[in-house]
């Protein structure tokens, strides 16, 4: 029996060595899998990573598999394991709640490259990369412009729960607003849910009643807040994706994530045989975060200028955002 196994492995080895696919490995399609919590066309977090891979697909053959809508963390863990087992080259665990599982799974598949975000932790593993967005930078720029626009001296933020990427964006926004106008009333309302659209709408109305005349918000339930702002023609700043389509009349600008900037680096590393161990961050300076203006919105030139100045300041390092 043992002997048989030996023959078998020898035969396998020969097959692998002789197989043309091994020799042409660099030329074949890269197999990439995305596991994400919401729908792939959600105009928000999940869509941003799918768009990132699709941007790369223009130049390179990529076989893409997407498991979206996976909000059950254990199901995501099973998907991560399954894709790794099926021989995918790169598995993207696109949700900060997936990290704990990835930490335990990745060591079982040393030949697979994993990346996850948003986070800044590779668990010290050689085949895991992490990625995050400096959403505080975009938030800061938006805050500056919002404060510059506000006539009543009040801006409002609708947030989900005070954690992760949402907290980063909200804190950046408040910091920017205060930097532009120290006396601004920047009110933040964390509604306690990522999915309660009706509550988000009422939170936006509460802000407006309290005297906010510029609004922003983050996470997927803000579609409700955008609707409420639109009914009162109150300007809105978007994040995670370009939200202009949701309310062309009021969306001033959106912070957009261009993950292809770092995905290109991860894939280039893989071509060179490096499967991970690096932490990536998209920001304004590296072009991973872009502020997209809505051309249809008639924005005061001075406001845009204040925004552009903030962008330049963050890029050259004269403005510091975030907690560290």
């Amino acid at each position: 029996m043992k002997k048989f196994n030996l023959y078998l492995s020898a035969a396998f080895l020969a097959l692998i060595l002789l197989s043309p696919s091994a020799l042409l490995a660099s030329g074949k399609a890269l197999k990439v899998a995305i596991i994400a919590p919401s729908a792939q066309n959600d105009l928000a977090f999940t869509q941003s990573i799918v768009d990132g891979i699709k941007a790369i697909q223009k130049d390179r053959e990529i076989e893409l598999a997407i498991t979206d809508g996976t909000f059950v963390v254990e199901d995501a863990a099973a998907a991560i394991r399954d894709y790794a087992k099926k021989g995918f080259d790169l598995v993207l665990a696109h949700g900060s709640q997936y990290g704990g599982s990835l930490k335990e799974i990745a060591p079982d598949f040393p030949d697979t490259a994993f990346a996850w975000g948003t986070s800044a932790d590779t668990f010290g593993l050689a085949n895991v990369s992490s990625y995050e967005a400096a959403s505080d930078e975009g938030g800061y720029v938006m805050g500056v412009m919002a404060a510059a626009m506000s006539k009543k001296g009040g801006v409002g933020v609708v947030g989900p729960i005070e954690v992760g990427d949402a907290k980063l964006y909200v804190d950046g926004f408040v910091q920017g607003a205060k930097a532009q106008n120290a006396k601004i009333r920047a009110k933040v309302n964390y509604i306690g849910s990522f999915s309660d659209v009706a509550l988000a709408a009422e939170a936006a109305r509460a802000h407006m009643a309290a005297g906010a005349d510029v609004l922003t918000g983050t996470a997927q339930m803000v579609v409700g807040a955008i609707g409420a702002a639109r009914a009162k023609r109150v300007p809105w700043f978007g994040t995670q994706a370009n939200q202009t389509e949701l309310a062309p009349e009021i969306v001033v600008a959106s912070q957009v994530y261009k993950w292809d900037v770092i995905l290109n680096k991860i894939i280039a590393d893989m071509d060179a045989g490096v499967k991970g161990g690096k932490m990536y961050k998209i920001n304004l300076a590296n072009g991973g975060i872009v502020i997209e203006f809505n051309d249809a919105y008639k924005l005061d030139a001075s406001v845009k200028e204040a925004g552009m100045k903030a962008i330049a300041g963050i890029k050259d390092g004269s403005i510091k955002t975030g907690h560290k």
């Binding site: 409002g156 729960i161 005070e162 009110k187 933040v188 309302n189 964390y190 509604i191 306690g192 849910s193 509550l199 009422e202 939170a203 509460a206 802000h207 009643a209 309290a210």
Partner: peptide, 18 residues
């Protein structure tokens, strides 16, 4: 919601308020 907006309920307790 209104209390949160005015900061009557501190942000650290927003879940408890919910």
């Amino acid at each position: 919601l209104q209390c949160k907006t005015f900061g009557v309920i501190p942000r650290s307790a927003s879940d408890l308020a919910a």
